[in-house]
């Protein structure tokens, strides 16, 4: 019988060890992937075959099933990044850095897709691909912020130092996004009459709600799976950098 002399650590501290985190979460990857795939199949089946056209928007309502989840993710991913940024600054949690970095390009792509599907939805409903409507405009600004953060990550050589600086910027952005949203709403109502499409507009019958919810969960799980995988990759990349540095030191001495 051996006596455990190692100090007791909470899961919070143990998960801070990147290798431990990878070991713990790797078994989650495949179930998550499978679940995501099943939900996408079900969601797409509902979206195309098992849901009627909307009495007002007709078949274009089917665009909503990919538009709304992407629009949600564009904000959800920023939320994840902001929470991770807090983790970096307050607790100096090493995984928070990794989570922040892995989330940025994913968020940028989901935001771009939200804009893309929004434009394709706008064409038949509003008659134009782009409307300087409050929501589309603030999503565009959000995309710029994401791209700025991605550019910032790429500009730094030392990723450990980069994390804290980018965390500051991410949090400044998080404070600013509601202000941007408010100002853009103020601005668009000043310049044009309220748009045709309103959030409280057409009531959603259950036949539309079901595919929407399934796609919603499917996209969120897709993000979580990709985020986890990208975090594992980032942890490995850091190990690569460390090893390369060690090899260079070994060669020079």
């Amino acid at each position: 019988m051996s006596i455990d002399t190692a100090p007791k650590q909470s899961w919070w501290n143990r998960i801070a060890h990147p290798g431990q985190f990878v070991a713990w979460t790797r078994p989650l990857l495949w179930p998550l992937t499978a679940l995501t795939a099943v939900l996408f199949v079900v969601g797409l089946w509902f979206a195309f075959f098992a849901s009627p056209e909307d009495y007002q928007m007709g078949d274009t309502v089917r665009i909503m099933y990919v538009h709304v989840p992407n629009a949600w993710l564009s904000q959800f991913v920023y939320g994840i990044m902001a929470v991770s940024a807090l983790g970096t600054l307050v607790w100096r949690h090493p995984l928070a850095d990794v989570s922040m970095k892995a989330a940025a390009p994913l968020g940028a792509l989901f935001t771009a897709l939200a804009l893309f599907t929004g434009a394709l939805w706008g064409r038949p409903t509003w008659g134009t691909f782009w409307e300087w409507d409050g929501r589309m405009t603030s999503t565009l600004v959000l995309l710029f912020i994401y791209l700025g953060i991605v550019a910032l990550w790429r500009a730094f050589d030392d990723q450990l130092r980069a994390a804290r600086i980018i965390a500051v910027f991410t949090l400044v952005g998080a404070i600013n996004i509601p202000i941007i949203k408010f100002s853009v709403d103020w601005w668009s109502t000043l310049h044009q009459p309220a748009s045709v499409f309103r959030a409280d507009g057409p009531r959603m019958p259950g036949s539309i709600l079901t595919p929407l919810m399934v796609m919603f969960v499917a996209f969120t799980l897709l993000f979580l799976t990709l985020h986890l995988k990208a975090m594992h990759t980032e942890i490995k990349r850091r190990r690569v950098v460390t090893l390369q540095r060690k090899a260079a030191q070994g060669a020079s001495s």
Partner: peptide, 12 residues
């Protein structure tokens, strides 16, 4: 509006 729907899904 099939074109728009198909393009939206294809793009995503």
């Amino acid at each position: 509006h099939a074109v728009f729907i198909i393009w939206a899904y294809l793009g995503v």
